[in-house]
Amino acid sequence: MRSTDSLIVRYIARRSVPFIQLYALYVLGHGEDGPGGGFQGGVIFASSFVLLGLANGWGYGRRAAPARLLDPLLPLGCLIYLGIGLAALLAGGAFLEYGALAGSDDPEVRRHWHHYGLIGIEVGVMVTVSAAMATLFFEMARPARVQARVDRVGEEADRA
């Protein structure tokens, strides 16, 4: 997508990014006390890059969230989730039994670790969701000019 011609729109979009991302982290952190959580936070976090791409052009947004950064983040979130589950298993509890992460039977300590586990999996969800949403946008919105080059590279690699 081309960038908009309006300097004001481009500037406001750039300056909004940190606030959107801060709000996304707020939504993530307050999922236990109010509406929100990793999924919503991840979507909002990704929307900051979508806004950059829409207002300042595809290339500008892509440079802020390049594929070599987003691609590893996609499975990383799943691995965080899985890792916390397996860590609970190794600590002697059931799979995803966050309280077992404490490694002690004190209910107070277990309650704390339960919080950490829950926030941990929410972080995992957020990482995967935000990377996935941004990737979906940047892959689909890729300008025809760039897409043609992508296709040519692919065809040449097919022939080789």
């Binding site: 999922g31 236990e32 509406p35 339960h114 919080h115 829950l118």
Partner: peptide, 9 residues
């Protein structure tokens, strides 16, 4: 779970 929002637990 100690969470106020039941949806998250």
């Amino acid at each position: 779970t100690g969470a106020a929002n039941v949806v998250t637990p």
